[in-house]
Amino acid sequence: MSGFFARRPPNQPGLAVFLNAGDPPLPVLADVMRMLDDCRVDCLELAVPFPDSVTDGPVIRRSARRALAEGVGLDEVLDFLGEVLPRLRHLKVALLADWGHTVRGLTVPGFVRRVADSGVDGLLVHGLPPRLRADCLEAAREAGVPMVATCYTASASAVKAAAAESATAYLYLVAHYGRSGGGLAADDRELAATLAALRKTTAGRAAAGRTTAVPIAVGFGVRSRADIALLHGLGADAAVVGSAGVARIERALTEGTDAVEEFHTFVHTLSPYSTRY
């Protein structure tokens, strides 16, 4: 299986958390990442901030605006990762970059090579035009950058199959349509059936020798340990927690408290094994 979430025992779901680079400011974010590494959180989805995402609710939109106000863009994020990643022992980082705000205007191979040079563990390109998908996957393969692919529970079968075929880091299954920040509103039976079908496709790829099996992470509305346990019981390898954690960062910044300790407390509510070593 892909290195993402592979170190978890089978009875423990993997955990990914989302943050915008620059919220909290990069020096504090470095401390947050070291804390997540100490806590053996599996994955940080780290976004190069971009404004007015159509899939994000107000919490993540405010976070992106704060990060952009800090002057954080692609150059700053890649330089930051080049310094922080070599010090991590467990935490893997998947970089999320928006096509329209961050990538467009660059050549796809050039962008992917810069990402590879940062040492990042995976890449998700948000809003990538379908006509460029093959070029991006080929550039990632040549640069050795594992790709995160996405689909929705309600996506057409062909879209789900294409996502399962192209994922080399992990497959991110979005539980339901809408904007981030709500609850876990997916239909349990539909979600379980989707996970089973995606698992069959990824297992088939591995059996055919085209790639190793990739884990499936489910996100959108995941807010609690109970949500994570539910998803694991339905067949997910991991859960992705976004708005609920970003809200804790926002609270710390607003109240002037320690963002690292605030986020550590939040992570511990999600996973009993996420305690500092």
Rank of each mutant, 00 (worst) to 15 (best):
M1T: 08
S2N: 12
P9S: 08
L15Y: 03
F18M: 07
G22D: 02
D23H: 10
P24G: 09
P25Y: 02
V28K: 13
V28Y: 04
A30P: 02
L36W: 10
D38T: 14
D42H: 06
C43W: 01
E45N: 06
L46H: 05
A47C: 09
P49R: 07
D52S: 12
S53E: 13
V59R: 08
I60Y: 06
R62W: 01
A64L: 12
A64E: 08
A67T: 15
L68P: 05
A69W: 02
A69C: 02
A69H: 05
E76Q: 15
E76A: 15
L78T: 13
D79Y: 03
F80N: 05
G82Y: 09
E83K: 15
V84D: 09
R89C: 09
D98Q: 12
T102S: 09
V103F: 01
L106I: 01
R114S: 09
D117I: 11
G119E: 10
L123A: 07
L124V: 13
C136R: 10
A140E: 04
A140M: 11
E142Q: 13
M147E: 05
M147K: 03
A149R: 07
S155D: 09
K160C: 13
A163Y: 08
E165I: 06
A167F: 09
T168D: 03
Y172Q: 09
L173N: 03
G182M: 07
A185W: 01
A186D: 08
R189G: 14
L195E: 05
A197S: 13
T202A: 01
T202C: 04
A207M: 13
T211P: 00
T211A: 15
A213Y: 08
V214P: 01
P215V: 12
P215K: 02
I216K: 00
V218H: 05
L231E: 02
V240G: 00
S243C: 06
A244L: 01
A247Q: 08
G256A: 06
V260G: 10
E261V: 12
T265F: 00
H268I: 02
L270F: 00
S271K: 05
S274P: 00
T275M: 00
